[in-house]
Simulated assay, not measured.
Amino acid sequence: MSETDDIFEPAPSSLQDLIDNDLDGLLDAPEKPKKVTSSDRLERAFLEIVEFRRVHGRQPSSTTREIAERKLGARLDGILTNNEKIAVLRHLDTEYDLLAVEAAPESLGDLLASDELDDLLGDESGILDVSDLPVIKRPEAPDSVAHRVKAQDFGQFVPLFKAKHAELAEGTYKLMPFTGMDLIREGAFFVLNGVMCFVAEVGEDVDLIVGGKPRQKQRLRVVFENGTESAMYRQSLMTRLYETQGQVLARTSHDASEVLDADVESGHIYVLQSLSKDPLVAGMKDLHKIGFSTTTVETRIKNAANSPTYLMAPVKVLADYRLYNVRASWLEHLLHRVFAEVRLNLTQVDRKGRDYDPSEWFVVPLETINKAVAMIMSGEITEYVYEKALQRLVERD
């Protein structure tokens, strides 16, 4: 045997010998990496917040200018709004009680007495100091920014909102996700931040310079169910609906893209007050004309002073109900039936000397007319009658 023969081990005689002699673990199979779950990622993210608390001695803020800290602060804020996440992470929160959620104040007095409002504007951190921030250049003039104001003639829109709620309740209408600008047209109903709103008018195109480029925009008249209205731009309403995951009201048998084919303006029911100087007419309290028109009311009454229908005198528009998906002529007829007992009994003489009996004038308070319209739209009117002596609608016996 040569001198080198004792340097080498004899070759393994079997596979088992090979495995047994693998002292360095060369034949060991690498461990399969463990799959990272959403809970693992959540725990890892929370431990970063814990480490920040340990190093800095305070919780991360979601309002600071430091991007890394703001990210951690926003993450913690998100966790604290989710009870499921809090339950998953509770076992990791043993040092600093980061997941403790304070009970909401039970009253305004409790809120004002809390320490959080002490020295609110002291701002030792400098968060409110914006002196070194760039000035924001507004692309539009200040008067182009729409704010909500008290809705003018809100009473005429109340029946429309009531009708839509009734149709939602009975299933003829449904709420669908807002899908795009094409849905924003006159007559459409939306839900924005939990409040139903109605696009009452769409204005003409306005040329504006936005971001240095010419753009055309349209002002809307958007009436909200809470009694306010806004003259926002069409694009602004679209943005708000997208941001808040707004909804559009559509007929159950239609999809959202057809909603406006279903919501068609069917006419106007209007209420007028006579401006006649005839003592017989001028001295009559609560005298109102309830009429129907397929054109604008302004167009309809343009020649009122020369028409016996309008008592041969100018008139004042007190209400203009723009109706959608309702036979306006049917509604007018029903209103006339409700107030038939107080129909004006008066004969007028026209310019040619002919007698004329105006049939659309009634001695009834305006608020009662408004209530009747609302009840007709909601279906409640069948349970009520008009009581002349009380000048209001009362339940049937």
Rank of each mutant, 00 (worst) to 15 (best):
L89G: 05
P12I: 11
G211Y: 11
R138F: 12
P142R: 07
Y96I: 10
D261I: 06
G126A: 06
G246M: 04
K352S: 11
P314K: 13
S359Y: 02
P358M: 05
G291T: 09
F198D: 00
T347E: 13
K150Y: 08
K35G: 00
E258N: 11
D97L: 08
R70C: 02
Y96T: 08
N325R: 15
E43N: 00
S144T: 14
L260H: 13
T172M: 12
I290L: 10
P177R: 09
S114D: 11
L334H: 11
V297D: 09
K316A: 14
S14H: 13
E395K: 13
K34I: 12
D28T: 11
S107G: 05
G73P: 02
R44A: 13
A151C: 12
A11C: 08
K277N: 15
L42E: 00
F190W: 03
G78P: 02
T347H: 04
F46P: 00
L183R: 14
V326Q: 03
P142I: 03
L323V: 11
T309Q: 15
T252C: 01
Y242F: 13
G155L: 08
V36Y: 02
D123A: 09
C197P: 00
T4A: 07
E341P: 00
V259D: 01
D261P: 00
V88T: 14
D207P: 01
L92S: 04
F154P: 04
G353L: 03
